[in-house]
């Protein structure tokens, strides 16, 4: 096999894979943020905490009720998504008329509360969550060994991203959503229940973060602060991709994960800052983001 700049291919592909896995989480999480930002104009700071809840609900289902991963993959997003809808109805809606800063502060406060409650009960050390039996083991791809569960994460993230893109860009419900993003008053003048649409959209965005949390449970340790570091990177991703842009979130998520992985190979010192450097550059040259519309 070839060697690139003295890097053995195994190390290179390993980091590419890791980058794609991180990118999968960036993509699914920033997709949820983009969907929420598009319609509600809310920067959902609680996204990381809700991602953590997704992982924890999945852990609780297994630990307390013996419900396996495959069911958690559906149940956990539903439970956390329902909680999201309650948050929207009871807390975010009254702030709707006020400056966006208020909803940002509220969701930031929620993050602290949710994280604090989980720390109180579970501490900060991680809870183990086993990889489902059907997805254990590795696959020999010829040029590298792929842990099956890691491949599964990437495949699931791609499927969920595509399904969400399809739902929003190609269906009737999606056209309501895009129209309400543009002009909610006009949409309500056609007889469409915009407040309900808003609640469902927030619930859907939150469910996406919980889904990412369930996927993360077997690879990252399930702990109350697992969302904290991730969410900062995800915010950088949506700024780079373009606030509220579905395509920007998806492509931005995967490619920035990849860039991060490659940086780890070629210049490891910059691997934790590269995304923020790109963010700064994008803000300098195209402030609305790569896929964002100019305002």
């Amino acid at each position: 096999m070839f060697e690139l700049l003295g890097i053995p291919p195994q190390a290179l592909f390993g980091q590419v894979l890791l980058g794609l896995i991180n990118g999968s989480f960036y993509a699914v999480l920033s997709l949820g943020l983009a969907v929420i930002f598009g319609l509600l104009n809310i920067i959902n700071f609680a996204h990381g905490a809700l991602y953590m809840m997704g992982a924890f609900v999945s852990w609780m289902l297994l630990t307390y009720l013996g419900i396996p991963f495959w069911f958690a993959l559906v149940i956990s997003p539903l439970v956390v998504g329902a909680l999201g809808m309650v948050i929207e109805r009871t807390m975010l809606r009254p702030l709707h008329e006020l400056d966006h800063l208020y909803s940002l502060l509220l969701t930031f406060g929620l993050t602290l509360v949710i994280t604090g409650v989980f720390q109180n009960f579970y501490g900060v050390s991680g809870k183990p969550y086993p990889i489902p039996a059907a997805l254990t083991g590795v696959m020999n791809l010829g040029f590298m060994f792929l842990p099956i569960y890691r491949g599964f994460i990437i495949v699931m993230a791609v499927i969920v991203c595509f399904a969400t893109w399809f739902l929003i860009e190609k269906t009737r419900l999606g056209s309501y959503l895009r129209a309400a993003t543009e002009n909610p008053e006009m949409v309500s003048a056609f007889g469409i229940n915009v407040p309900l649409l808003v609640t469902l959209t927030y619930g859907f965005g939150v469910a996406l973060s919980a889904f990412a949390g369930v996927l993360a449970a077997p690879v990252y340790s399930v702990n109350p602060v697992m969302g904290n570091d991730l969410i900062i990177v995800v915010f950088a991703v949506i700024v780079i991709g373009g606030m509220g842009s579905i395509m920007g979130a998806i492509i931005g998520g995967f490619s920035l994960g990849l860039v991060e992985g490659l940086t780890k190979v070629f210049y490891p010192e910059a691997s934790t800052t590269i995304i923020f450097i790109i963010m700064a550059l994008v803000l300098l040259f195209k402030p609305s983001g790569i896929f964002g519309r100019e305002v």
Partner: peptide, 19 residues
């Protein structure tokens, strides 16, 4: 006119539900 710029003409046409 309330046309949605990010929707196609057909999507605009089909947007209002039948009442």
């Amino acid at each position: 006119r309330g046309i949605f710029g990010s929707l196609s003409v057909l999507e605009n046409l089909l947007l209002p539900p039948k009442v």
